[in-house]
C-alpha cells in the first residue's frame, strides 16, 4: 500500500520559543516533497516532528496532528512510527563502533532479524540501492567512519532503507557533500521514489527544483506556499516566495 502523510495545524516549540506555527500540508505517496526556506525557519524541526524525533529534545513541545495513512502518529508507539518513517540526517552519522556491514545491519538486527544469510541479503540489497555496494563490497568489515563523507552519507541512506520504511525523511542530506556525491544522492532519490515517499529538506533551491514533485516554502515557522514544484518555482503566488526564489532576500 502506498503511504502518505498529512500534517494538520502543526505547531512546535522549544521551551518558550515557537518555531513552527499552524503548518498544514499533504505529503502524497510515492512523491518527493521538498521543504525550502532560509536558515532557522523551522525546516528541520518540521521533519523531525514527522517521526517524533522532535519530542526527544528536552523542553520540546508540539501541537496539531501528523497523520500517517489517516492514523495520528502521536497515538502510535514511537518505535513503530520510526520503523515506518526512516530518516537521513544533515551530517553523516554512522555508528562509530560498527563496521560498514554492521551499520547497515544495525536496524535489522535490533529489530529482530537474526539469520546471517537474511542479513547478508538485506545488507547487499540496501547498499546497492544506496549506490554504495561497488565501492565497499570488498571491505564490509572496515569501520563505517573510515569512508569518505559522501560515502558515509550513502551508508546512512542504506542503513535507513534497510529496514524498508514506507517514508524517508531527508534533512539536508547533501549539505556536507561535494557536487559529485550530491549528484549520486539525487539520482538515488529518483530511484527510491519508486518504492518510498520522500520528504527532503534543502537549502538548495536548484536541488528542490531538480528532485521534487511538490515544494513547500517555509518562512519564520510558517508555511508560506505549498504547491507543485514547477508551479512554485515559475509562478509563485506569494510575493515572499518570489523574493526568496529569486534571491532577493534570505
Amino acid at each position: 500500500m502506498l503511504t502518505g502523510l498529512a500534517v494538520e495545524k502543526l505547531g512546535a516549540c522549544f521551551g518558550q520559543k515557537q518555531v513552527l506555527n499552524g503548518i498544514s500540508m499533504t505529503i502524497g505517496p510515492n512523491l518527493v516533497t521538498a521543504i525550502i526556506g532560509p536558515s532557522g525557519c523551522g525546516k528541520s524541526t518540521l521533519i523531525r516532528c514527522l517521526n517524533r524525533l522532535h519530542e526527544t529534545v528536552p523542553g520540546a513541545r508540539q501541537s496539531g496532528r501528523v497523520l500517517l495513512d489517516g492514523q495520528d502518529i502521536s497515538q502510535m508507539d514511537p518505535v513503530q512510527v520510526r520503523r515506518t518513517i526512516g530518516m537521513v540526517f544533515q551530517k553523516p552519522n554512522p555508528f562509530p563502533s560498527m563496521s560498514i556491514y554492521d551499520n547497515v545491519a544495525a536496524g535489522l538486527r535490533l529489530n529482530g532479524v537474526r539469520k546471517r544469510h537474511r542479513l547478508d541479503e538485506y545488507v547487499e540489497k540496501s547498499l546497492r540501492m544506496g549506490a554504495l555496494w561497488e565501492e565497499v563490497a570488498d571491505r564490509l568489515d572496515k569501520p563505517g567512519i573510515s569512508l569518505s563523507g559522501g560515502q558515509q552519507q550513502r551508508l546512512c541512506i542504506a542503513r535507513a532503507i534497510a529496514i524498508e520504511p514506507k517514508v524517508l525523511l531527508m534533512d539536508e542530506p547533501c549539505s556536507a557533500l561535494d557536487p559529485v556525491s550530491t549528484g549520486k544522492i539525487e539520482e538515488l532519490i529518483q530511484e527510491l521514489k519508486k518504492a518510498l515517499t520522500i520528504v527532503i529538506v534543502t537549502h538548495n533551491m536548484q536541488q528542490a527544483a531538480r528532485v521534487s514533485d511538490y515544494t513547500g516554502f517555509l518562512l519564520l515557522g510558517e508555511l508560506i506556499e505549498f504547491d507543485e514544484t514547477p508551479k512554485l518555482f515559475t509562478n509563485p503566488r506569494d510575493k515572499r516566495t518570489e523574493d526568496y526564489i529569486t534571491g532577493r532576500f534570505g
Partner: peptide
C-alpha cells in the same frame, strides 16, 4: 558520544 549518533539509532526505530 554525539547526540547525532543517538538520534540515528532512534530514527531506525530502535
Amino acid at each position: 558520544v554525539p547526540t547525532s549518533v543517538r538520534e540515528a539509532g532512534l530514527a531506525l526505530g530502535i
